[in-house]
Amino acid sequence: MGVSCHGAGKRVKTRFDEPTGYFVIDKRVRNIEAALEGIKDGAVILLGGFGVVGQPQELLGGLLHHDARDLTIVSNNAGFGSPSLPLLFATGRVAKLICSFPRPAPPPFEELYRSGKIALEIVPQGTLAERIRAAGCGIPAFYTPTAAGTELARGKETREFKGRTYVMEHALHADVALIQAWRADRWGNLIYRGTGRNFNPVMAMAADLTIVQTRHLAELGELDPETVVTPGIFVDRVVQIDSPDPPQA
């Protein structure tokens, strides 16, 4: 498998295909270790999922054995119901959590937060989604009515449009996105399952390195273009994992 460079930015993974004699795009990687390769200290990591549904559990598990530290995790929740996220907090390698609803928080997070060992930035859920979407769409900041006149707008620039106050919010770009899909092909086209979609499609757009764990791999052409949710352009690596269904709520 070769890695070649196209243009100044994204590295697109290609491989020589013996039968055809062509170089083809192939974003699949062998295992979790290969999927997580190159995550650096200080990385900002977007973590898909709402609760545990759509949270890439095995990639997160792989991060436990990784050596990158001083991480910032962006996640809707602080590990409620999650087997892996509380363990990641417990390693002490997460410096900051950007989150909309860190309650109820499993013990490691709560203890770290109370003792001041982890920073917490609370962001309204829709603002969080939009900041991530904006980053993926090349929009550096935007105005939203959400949080106007509240504590969460303190110190932020505001502006009036048609007599209503709006708060300026900045795009939230990341180094890495960890995504869970239901089906994926070697180009990185993705389809999700149920409410496992949640933050995953916008997070996939907003990182320098988008890593996907998928339950099923599809042959190229097998995914109906009408139903692809995340086009492969946003995806860098795909690893197939026989992950279990989310537990009963």
Binding site: F101, P102, E110, P124, T146, A148
Partner: peptide
């Protein structure tokens, strides 16, 4: 621990 979820978005 503070937690806002979608309440501010929904209210506004």
């Amino acid at each position: 621990i503070p937690a806002v979820g979608g309440a501010m978005d929904l209210s506004a």
